[in-house]
Amino acid sequence: MVTRDQIVAWLKTVAQVLEENKDYLTQLDAAIGDADHGINMDRGFKKVMSQLPGVEDKDIGSILKTTGMALISSVGGAGGPLYGTLFMRAGMAVDGKYELTDEDLAALLQAAVDGVVQRGRAQLGDKTMVDALTPATEAFKQAIGEGADTIEALRRAVDAAEQGMKDTIPMLAKKGRASYLGERSIGHQDPGATSSYLILKALLDVISQPQ
């Protein structure tokens, strides 16, 4: 079970984590992209933080949709539409809910990943955020199917995301600006997969804390 307060705490943690990792993500992006991912995500979640006080007493769906809209209008690049769509779809999947069962969380993750795939038209293995998000969602669904509790299922999801993120290192980029590098994109970790991992890990960290 995940409560609304935990979702709010998660978004605040994400903002903090992205600020701490701003330079790291930007460095990863400089190697194969255009050196702005960390800067953009930090700016986006600062906008989310400015809007959160107005919605934090609402349902989880509204909070996540507001997060999505804030990202769409502030991140820019590919990250804006992709993360914006991710949070919008996540919010739509849990509309009106004030707490999430494991099944709700699975539906939320699946809707979020589907939104990203649809918007960016990326496949697994293209060296994008999909490479972290898809294995994480699969791992979460499998874990709850096997009877794991929320924390354990999320831990497996985060492990899968981390592995997925590391797996992008030897991949040849097929989407986004990194694709222009061809063979030279090999050997670098994808910044989008990295931010996706950090965002999921922040959720695990918040849920693992005693309430």
Binding site: D34, A35, D36, S74
Partner: peptide, 11 residues
């Protein structure tokens, strides 16, 4: 105009 080298946003 977006930020430097960053796409502008839909709004």
């Amino acid at each position: 105009p977006g930020e430097v080298f960053t796409s502008p946003t839909p709004d």
